[in-house]
Design a protein around this nucleic acid. Sequence first.
DNA 1: CTACCTTATACTCATTATGAGTACAAGTAG
DNA 2: CTACTTGTACTCATAATGAGTATAAGGTAG
Lengths: 344, 344
Amino acid sequence: MSGSRASSTGTAGGQSYPKLLVGLNAVILAVTRDQPRVLTVGPQTASLGDASAKPVSTSRALPFGPFDREHDRTLELCMREAVRKQTGIDLGYVEQLYTFADKGRDPREGSGGSRVLSVGYLALLQEGPLAGVEDATWEDCYEFFPWEDWRGGKPALIEEIEAALMDWSGQVEQTSGGSDYRERIDICFGRGDAGWDAYQVLERYELLYEAKLVAEYWLDRSQSPTSPISARLGRPMAFDHRRILATGLGRVRGKMRYRPVAFELIPETFTLLRLQHAVEAISGLRSHKQNFRRLVERSGLVDGTGKREAKTGGRPAELFRFRRAVLRERRAPGVATLRPPRAP
Amino acid sequence: MSGSRASSTGTAGGQSYPKLLVGLNAVILAVTRDQPRVLTVGPQTASLGDASAKPVSTSRALPFGPFDREHDRTLELCMREAVRKQTGIDLGYVEQLYTFADKGRDPREGSGGSRVLSVGYLALLQEGPLAGVEDATWEDCYEFFPWEDWRGGKPALIEEIEAALMDWSGQVEQTSGGSDYRERIDICFGRGDAGWDAYQVLERYELLYEAKLVAEYWLDRSQSPTSPISARLGRPMAFDHRRILATGLGRVRGKMRYRPVAFELIPETFTLLRLQHAVEAISGLRSHKQNFRRLVERSGLVDGTGKREAKTGGRPAELFRFRRAVLRERRAPGVATLRPPRAP
DNA sequence: CTACCTTATACTCATTATGAGTACAAGTAG
DNA sequence: CTACTTGTACTCATAATGAGTATAAGGTAG
């Protein structure tokens, strides 16, 4: 959500009503040197519509912009334009994520009842140099979600998280009656027989928020965390932007399973290893190289170019190109499409 | 999109701006006697915020309600409440679909620049009797999308649609330069090697709209269709509600592939055939009975109750129950989960 | 040049999943 | 009883998947 501190009350149609602000946020992802990255802007720009607002946070924020009901033809165009102004980037692949208007979730909603509605977008692109507009930077996604990167095996942090969550669920269940927290923890973090489901990024973040473990819970209340683990649960972001980022990361991970979106993240021509690394970076999982190659080749998703890339450090690899025609040939890629491995 | 005819201009924060209305629409689906059904309301209720507005359409509309920025805590709660008031139904499973604010898409946006932003939701439930509030009725989904029901084999209508689309694409490509329409037609309607992808409901509807074949295109312009096929392309709905319905139907179809949502549509205990029919109704595809049973049983999604249902007309069938625990055991159902058949 | 590092690519193999049947079980209607 | 209905168990060929082994083709250190 993005909004100014304005809490003014407007009048229209003869009746008084609190001001409603519509903000657009963009989760813009890329992969550089096999790391998933997200485009962020500095906090001083984090105001909407009200240029005189002071920074409300020192954390990074997602690029965003106000929706201008007078001039913007569609939400998406407005978002593209805002991103272009704010970061100098022209977006390609874009999809809508989610719309929130939860009361009280955005601390910038004044007590006067002003309301913020925010529409989140996801964009994928090949990382390029930033035009250096304002304070835009690429940040490593897994700095915000250290528990989501399983490429090096199960992160040690997971054990601690589970312990902290079980601890919390024990306390809560004593006071209130509920006993479903255990089940949620099991499902989210793949305990028991479940296995890790890379897709559930948002569910995990929200559980951690509810358990009062992530920093934002305390920042939203201007208090200090009670648990020492909070400091190691990734960098916080401004407002509820980490939650939006979680939504976006989860969405790509899910979409990769049935649509060839990975190609949005890599150059026109690429080696299969590069493609594999992009998929792995986003999914946070490692895959079997030979089988990955078999999958990609047999799915008809790529065409060999005959050219090779020399700088591999070993035998030169062939350069491939995405075969758009595949969309016409195979029933919605999803049968034999590119996707991350099942789980560790 | 839902909005009143109001085109008033408000003032707030010292500057003048056009009024922004936020409307919520719900695609509420159920399955009765093996038919997918959608909950609709009469057109006379199709006004938002402005009770004196006259009906703008004689078609059915989706249930909806205005978002009250003052009182509603979240968008979802507001939608649930609006549906309860309008149809007497308490929703269970709900997910957000999409948010639009396209200028000019909603004819109720006055020329004065008033703006409508609408948030769509999807809800699944077991159809029950309606409390008869206002003018709520269940309608057969495939009356709105006759080309989406392949349970009896490829609908004859498809050939006609393809012919009309090819015709249109030929004309368009002559005047403008574009030549990608053929490809879109192929992808959407599964021509060539592609096969039918049940998921692409929205893509197909939008293509038909663009090709000026569906009735709404002409209704939006207060003109009469030029092609005789328009009369057979399903019933129109009010405003852009058929488009929203397409989004919803596509979403469930997609989601069924990797989440056990079909259980939302049937009673607590059910025979496997009933489950199968629910899946088939939504997906619009037939599946192999024995294999369906194998899939469901082996996935661990259901538990036998030991009881049987007698009224089957043949050998009594065992009654099963959804096993929620499966969510904890299998990695995100999607591996061996319930899903519609690949395609015909 | 050779030995040895790297990464690329081809092929094998056991296991499991899928699509399409056949066969038989257990009710109802006549 | 027989005919007809729907449910349920198995079979079987084929395809997809997970996990290897083997070999190719480049680099560099000695």
